[in-house]
């Protein structure tokens, strides 16, 4: 069950703090005026690489594709020394055991989506068995989706209980809860869903499935980071954050790091507490890193596209 043992500690989620959208956008614009140069840039870019959940979530995924991706996760750009691995690879449950085997000893975690990803439109038993299957296959992390329909219907208890049930099914695996913010409509609802997820037991809150047009944005991420901060103030428990989808450029990723740092502090700047869900971000970061080293602007032809 939830980490919050006493029901009296649970807030009324209808009273989640409100968010001013224009204020949020001004703040995110301000993060983007931070100028990240020279040494800061190199250190930051390496952090970014190490925070990536390298992801393939396609109907056409094959063992071959997953194997290639697992190799890339460990060998981002071998011509450059001292590069970290990515944080994890993220796959469907059916690919977990294969990925696990490919990544043995690398330190790269295996994350699996579950709960009838991406729509979540399945009975609770299916979601639980989906999750248990992935964990049994060796998943270190589970990325679940919330029931957005029930959330919009105001059935917050249902959403809460579902997350708590999946958390239980996770056992030792860390649970990332995908809010699918692009379907929530307002930042106030993003905030409310974040609160529900954290109080129900999420280890991470995550923006998006990557399967709809609107994925992670800086404003949405900031709202979630603020929710994490408020939760931490109240409980002392750290919750991780994972923006996913739409972050494909190194510069933008660095601005996310600035946002995390100035909102939550340096403690969150590791892949234990912050992840990027991304498939094409790694190569842009690598190109920037090589450019920092050589001084020359790079071509995509020189970077592998696994």
């Amino acid at each position: 069950m939830s980490r919050i043992k006493s029901k009296s500690l649970l807030p009324d989620f209808k009273l989640s703090p409100t968010v001013d959208q224009v204020g949020i956008e001004e703040r995110t614009a301000r993060f983007q005026t931070r100028s990240i140069k020279s040494e800061t840039k190199v250190v930051g870019l390496k952090k970014v690489l190490n925070m990536i959940d390298l992801t393939t979530l396609e109907g056409k995924d094959t063992p071959g594709k997953v194997k290639q991706m697992c190799y890339k996760a460990q060998h981002l750009h071998d011509s450059m020394p001292d590069l970290p691995t990515t944080a994890a690879v993220c796959v469907y449950p059916s690919m977990v055991s294969l990925a696990k085997a490919e990544l043995i000893g690398s330190g790269v975690k295996v994350a699996s989506v579950s709960t009838a990803f991406p729509s979540g439109q399945a009975p609770m038993e299916v979601k639980i068995s989906d999750t248990k299957f992935a964990v049994d296959q060796g998943a270190d992390e589970i990325d679940m989706v919330i029931s957005r329909g029930r959330f919009h219907a105001g059935d917050y208890n249902f959403v809460f209980d579902e997350i708590a049930a999946i958390k239980e099914a996770c056992g030792r695996a860390r649970l990332k809860v995908i809010l699918e913010t692009g379907e929530l409509g307002t930042l106030d609802k993003v905030r409310r869903a974040s609160d529900i997820a954290m109080y129900a037991g999420a280890d991470f809150i995550k923006t998006s499935t990557g399967k709809i047009a609107v994925a992670a944005t800086m404003p949405v991420t900031l709202v979630m980071l603020e929710a994490i901060k408020d939760y931490y103030y109240k409980t002392g428990i750290m919750i991780g954050m994972k923006p996913a989808g739409g972050i494909s450029k190194a510069k933008l990723a660095l601005h996310y790091l600035v946002m995390v740092r100035e909102t939550l502090g340096d403690a969150w700047l590791t892949n234990e507490w912050f992840r990027f869900g991304a498939s094409s971000l790694a190569n842009d970061v690598l190109m920037q890193l090589v450019k920092q080293e050589t001084g020359n602007y790079q071509s995509a032809d020189y970077f592998s596209i696994d």
Binding site: D20, Q21, V22, G23, E25, G185, T186, L187, A213, V214, T217, P219, V220
Partner: peptide
């Protein structure tokens, strides 16, 4: 006073 801009700004929100 700020104007929340949700409807017309699917990409920004």
């Amino acid at each position: 006073h700020p104007i929340e801009n949700i409807g017309g700004s699917s990409s920004k929100y």
